[in-house]
Amino acid sequence: MNEIIETLLQHRSIRKFEDRLLTDEQIKMIVQCAQAASTSSYIQAYSIIGVKDQVKKETLATLAGEQGYVAKNGHFFVFCADLHRHEVISNVENVDITESLESTEKFMVAVIDAALAAQNAAMAAESMGLGICYIGGLRNNLVEVSKLLNVPKRVIPLFGLSVGYPAHSSSKKPRLPLEHIYHEDEYMQDERQYKEQIKQYDDIVSAYYTERTKGKRTDRWSEQMMKMLEQPKRMYMKEFIEKKGFSNQ
Rank of each mutant, 00 (worst) to 15 (best):
S127Y: 05
N140E: 07
R85A: 10
I43S: 13
M128N: 08
F77K: 05
R154G: 03
H183T: 10
F76H: 08
Y208Q: 09
T39P: 00
G245A: 12
D113C: 06
L142D: 15
M108Y: 07
A81N: 09
V151C: 11
I112V: 14
V31A: 06
A207P: 08
D96T: 07
S90T: 01
I89V: 14
V145F: 01
Q44Y: 09
A121S: 09
I27R: 11
Y187N: 08
I241P: 07
V95W: 04
V78K: 06
N91D: 09
K199R: 12
F17A: 05
Q26F: 00
R175C: 13
E87Y: 13
E126I: 09
E242T: 14
K243Q: 15
H183P: 07
M123T: 14
E239M: 04
K216P: 00
N141M: 02
E25C: 02
Q249P: 01
G74I: 02
I181C: 12
V31R: 00
G50K: 11
E58P: 02
V95A: 03
R217Y: 06
G129M: 13
Q200F: 05
P157T: 12
Y42H: 14
Q67T: 11
M1N: 10
N91V: 00
I97H: 04
A34M: 01
E179C: 07
L138C: 06
L149P: 10
C80G: 09
N140G: 02
M225T: 08
G215T: 01
I135V: 15
Y42V: 07
F159D: 01
H86T: 04
K56T: 15
R212K: 15
D24V: 03
E230C: 10
A114K: 07
M108L: 11
L229C: 12
P177L: 09
H86S: 06
I97R: 05
V55W: 00
W221M: 06
Q249W: 07
E242R: 15
S103C: 12
Q224H: 08
Y69T: 02
L116H: 11
W221P: 01
G131K: 00
M228A: 15
I49E: 12
F77Q: 04
V92N: 10
A114I: 06
E144Q: 10
I112W: 02
G245P: 11
V78M: 06
I198M: 10
S222Q: 10
S171Q: 15
G50R: 14
S100A: 11
A64K: 05
N248Q: 15
H75N: 10
K72D: 07
T23W: 08
